[in-house]
Amino acid sequence: MLNKEKVRVGIAPIAWTEDDMPEMGAGNSFLQTISEIALTGYTGTEIGCQYPHNPDVLNEEFGRRGLSAITAWISTYINEKPMWWNERAFIDHMNFLKSIGATLINVSDQSYSIQHCWDTPLANKYVLNDDEWDVLAKGLDHLGKIAVENGMQIVYHHHMTTTVQKTGEIDRLMEMTDPKYVNLIYDTGHLTFSGEDPVEILNKHFNRIKHVHLKNVREDAMKKAYAEGKSFLRSIPEGVFTVPGDPEGMVDFPSVFKILEEKGYEGWLVVEAEQDPDIANPLDYAKTAREYVNKFTGL
């Protein structure tokens, strides 16, 4: 079992309202979402698109429900936009997170990304050249140093359809960045959807993993997305993602939990699965995932 003093279980609100397609779940309000999160036994939440960005409101409403703010996504464009632009946006985001008690900054570089391209097939993702890798690594180290100087920490989100998606790309980013400044989000769903082995990545990069996303994948929907040349966005309403504990999922979570326990993971475990809430009721799926995580971790 994982250490209850050092590991906490949270959830991302993306199952209630889909960040990349906010019309999906637009009727689920901020207060409904965080109330259902608390009701189902989670102690933390990431920040979603339906959440207000007023720290006073967030701190008050989270406090009422015994929730902690975990982190929030920021898109950088280190190879597309000047560093002053990235730095300014990063510092604003960092200060917002700091004001609500978070210490982790969820960073994903969206330079040349096809994540938000409705009709661009998954296979068309961009591959960085050597010079672009150098720019990305140096830029992330620069932003990571700013974070550390402010008591915060970058956790980089490898992600489908971005330039850091595959195993070799994750390896290269970890090799080229300073562990004092840049560490990793470990996302079981994005690794699986990308055709990678989540267990291999967890073993290889455990010392750099400071945050965990527990996301499941439906194999049939994944195979269909590749076979039909679907985009990332088009795969979501067709149910490519689901939560731990869903019998339709294919991720080997028992092995993942075993490694996290054996290696002494400390930090958040965050359930995350963007789905159409009109099809996959967020409250029901949150309950399923919470019970499953408790069964295998004791948390």
Rank of each mutant, 00 (worst) to 15 (best):
M1F: 04
L2E: 02
L2G: 13
E5A: 15
A12P: 05
I14Q: 07
A15R: 08
T17F: 07
D19Y: 13
P22L: 05
E23Y: 13
N28M: 10
S29P: 06
I34V: 12
S35I: 03
E36N: 14
A38V: 06
L39P: 01
G48E: 06
Q50Y: 11
Q50E: 02
Y51F: 15
N54R: 11
P55V: 04
E60I: 03
E61C: 05
G63R: 01
R65K: 12
G66R: 02
G66I: 04
A69E: 06
T71M: 09
N79L: 10
A89S: 13
D92Y: 08
H93V: 06
M94T: 04
S99K: 04
A102F: 05
A102I: 04
A102K: 12
T103S: 14
I105E: 01
V107R: 00
S111Y: 01
S111I: 02
Y112C: 08
I114H: 07
C117M: 14
C117T: 06
D119Q: 12
T120Q: 10
N124A: 12
V127C: 10
D130I: 12
L136P: 02
K138V: 03
G139E: 11
L140P: 02
H142L: 08
N150K: 15
N150Y: 01
Q153I: 02
Q153H: 13
H157Y: 11
V164E: 05
D171L: 05
L173R: 02
L173N: 01
M174R: 00
T177R: 07
P179A: 10
K180A: 14
T188D: 00
L191S: 11
L191W: 11
F193M: 14
K204I: 02
F206E: 03
N207E: 14
V212W: 10
K215Q: 11
V217G: 07
K223S: 09
Y226K: 11
Y226N: 09
L233S: 02
R234A: 14
G239S: 07
F241L: 10
T242D: 15
V243N: 09
P247D: 03
P247T: 08
G249E: 05
G249C: 06
F253K: 10
E262S: 15
G264H: 00
A273H: 12
E274R: 08
D276A: 09
D276W: 07
P277T: 07
A280N: 14
Y285P: 03
E291A: 15
